[in-house]
């Protein structure tokens, strides 16, 4: 990989045309984010005409108890589901990498199904499932608990795949060395493997967390009274055409994800320098 740096092929340089196209594409990717931030400072209550600069929507947001409780629900949902799915997903990723068993290939393939299945299909499948079980056993009243279960279900495969990728990049001789030194399976895992795959687990957890924050469709169908999350709140407000406060809320969320992404990149870079 390093070798080709010395080559001076014309194809390896960006022409001005590619540069312009790339910059336009970046503008295209960031236009929606920019417009939300911009309009969160727009005075107009209705519509898209610019009528003046204001920060009153942020002040209104701080007073908005619905938005506050939606934020709380979103965090509970994301933290709850991520903690469960990270544990289960890591175990699954570990099992898939370190064990040979019949049906593994099939499981490997099927694991992509929950990832690629349209979220609306998953949402209505769970809705049907919950309502049948509820009629039969009287459990699974819709609410935060059913939402957490739903989120864990789509998070597990993501965590498993990320952790597995990290595991398969490890040198297997490390495990052997640890065993030769007399460590049992758990000791090897805890002292050798775990520290090495920790960045993978954290990356998987981050991904799971973001997926949960991002999800609207599954939450919408499995939610109950008072378990409105931020995406549900944003969606219903947008549908009703009341957006200035939502722009302010979205701006805060966008800033959170930008900061999160940058922190994560810095962390990863630090990590990759260390190893």
């Amino acid at each position: 990989m390093v070798r080709r740096k010395t080559e001076g092929v014309a194809m390896k340089q960006n022409s001005w045309r590619t540069t312009v196209i790339a910059l336009l594409l970046f503008a295209f990717l960031y236009a929606p984010i920019a417009v939300v931030i911009l309009y969160s400072f727009n005075e107009a209550r209705f519509g898209t005409n610019w009528t003046g600069f204001t920060t009153k929507w942020y002040a209104a947001l701080a007073q908005n108890s619905l938005a506050l409780s939606a934020s709380k629900n979103t965090l509970i949902l994301a933290l709850g589901s991520t903690s469960i799915s990270t544990i289960f997903g890591t175990m699954l990723g570990y099992a898939l990498d370190r064990f040979v068993f019949s049906g593994k290939r099939f499981l490997d393939r099927t694991l992509y199904l929950p990832i690629f299945i349209p979220d609306i299909v998953m949402a209505v499948a769970l809705l049907l499932f919950y309502s049948l079980i509820r009629n039969w056993l009287g459990i699974f009243e819709l609410g935060l608990k059913t939402m957490i279960i739903a989120h864990v279900t789509f998070q597990i495969p993501f965590v498993a795949i990320v952790v597995r990728a990290r595991l398969s990049g490890l040198d297997p001789s490390l495990d052997e060395a640890s065993r030769d030194l007399g460590a049992n399976g758990w000791q090897t895992f805890w002292h050798v493997t775990f520290p090495l795959i920790l960045p993978g687990i954290l990356a998987g957890a981050m991904l799971a967390f973001t997926l949960s924050l991002d999800d609207f469709v599954v939450s919408f169908f499995t939610s109950g009274p008072g378990s409105t999350t931020l995406p549900i709140y944003i969606y219903s407000s947008v549908k009703r055409g009341v957006t200035p406060e939502i722009n302010a809320l979205s701006t805060l969320l966008v800033l959170a994800s930008i900061i999160g992404t940058i922190l994560l990149t810095l962390l990863q870079r630090k990590n990759s320098k260390q190893t």
Binding site: A31, P32, V36, G47, V238, S250
Partner: peptide
């Protein structure tokens, strides 16, 4: 990082923003 940021940003927000961008005015 610039490519990744939208990827981590809520899809709902990026989508409704196009309502503003493409509105008649």
């Amino acid at each position: 990082t610039l490519v990744v940021i939208p990827f981590w940003t809520n899809l709902l927000i990026r989508t409704y923003a196009w309502q503003i961008l493409l509105s008649p005015e």
